[in-house]
Design a protein around this nucleic acid. Structure first.
Lengths: 197, 197
DNA sequence: CCTACCGATCGGTAGG
DNA sequence: CCTACCGATCGGTAGG
């Protein structure tokens, strides 16, 4: 019986986190109130606090869930035997897919993390930095192998990551390109731009 | 005498707008309070209202100042006799330079405009849409002329605009690449990616 | 430009 | 999970 209650409780928290991600994406973390969130979940604001400790804890959970997801994926890519360029492509396709299908959480983790409280803010910044360093290492190795042309690596990473995070506006656009078409176009432009002829 | 007072008054408003742009960039529009702004300007919060009507008016002025600047530049580019690819390059270089040297205003206009009040919000969205359509027309003409390779134009525009707006994180990075180097790298990757071989 | 203050709303708590 | 409520802070105004 206790286990079932725990089970329901966890799922209730997930409902809150999902609603919060959508709300923070729509209005921004600061502009979204706990009363807004409560209305979206279908309870009174005070009732939320039976499932979460604070507003900032919700933001923390969203950001670190995404960070873990991305780090885990990078682990897989690094241990694969694919070529460097293929590894970069795998990373980009993963990110594009997350941006398309896990939109709200990814957006919040990407744009609203600045409102995290210390020490989590610093931790989060370190995680982001490490992720970029790992991607940098893959591209650098590809250049050494003559697979990837001799681009300025930090500039290339900037362009790739921001081009993908820009997909957020695709979700809001009226004339939506098909997700698969969008993915292929982005991969085509970015990966072709890196390939050594 | 009246003219001098008007002059001082305008300049005081500009001081407030500049301080507000920096503040909204640091903390976000919603998280930045009028008391924060007053402190930055060096007056009491109530005194700000002798120069501006409301917080939302400040955001409006910042966003529409930038929008006008960008539209005016696009006017110049359109009437020039340069090749299509060169026109795209000119637009990108202008945007990169604005992002580097007019950082706070551009950032706010790019990321915080969602908090504009109607009807200005809709007007602003239309301005952005028109700007993209004009850039689309330049690229499309370049493809017809065999200057630019046959990319998917909306995807290419997305990548370019978001790659550039991503420069915002460059400003916060510890190991700053030289601005000129950053500009050349971005132009090199993006324009080379468009050029028909 | 300031002091004094307003109604509204915020995140969160007490107690049941 | 709710009612009732808290202290803090918000954007903005009155009056000088």
């Amino acid at each position: 019986m206790a286990r079932i209650i725990t089970g329901n409780d966890l799922s209730r928290k997930d409902v809150i986190l999902n609603a919060a991600a959508a709300l923070f994406r729509e209005k921004g973390y600061k502009a979204a109130s706990m009363r807004d969130l409560a209305e979206k979940v279908g309870v009174e604001a005070a009732s939320l606090y039976n499932h979460i400790r604070s507003k900032t804890e919700i933001l923390h959970d969203i950001c670190f869930n995404i960070a873990t997801l991305y780090s885990d994926h990078m682990d897989q890519v690094e241990t694969s035997t694919a070529s460097s360029l293929k590894k970069v492509e795998t990373v980009l396709r993963f990110q594009i897919n997350q941006m398309i299908h896990n939109y709200a959480e990814v957006y919040v983790a990407d744009r609203e993390w600045q409102y995290l409280a210390e020490p989590h803010l610093s931790t989060y910044q370190n995680i982001r930095h490490t992720y970029r360093k790992r991607l940098n290492a893959i591209i650098t190795r590809g250049i050494e192998n003559n697979e990837i042309k001799e681009v300025n690596v930090p500039s290339a990473i900037w362009i790739m990551l921001h081009a993908i995070s820009g997909i957020e506006s695709w979700h809001r656009s009226k004339t939506k390109v098909d997700p698969a078409v969008l993915e292929e176009n982005i991969i085509s432009i970015l990966i072709d731009g890196l390939r050594k002829n």
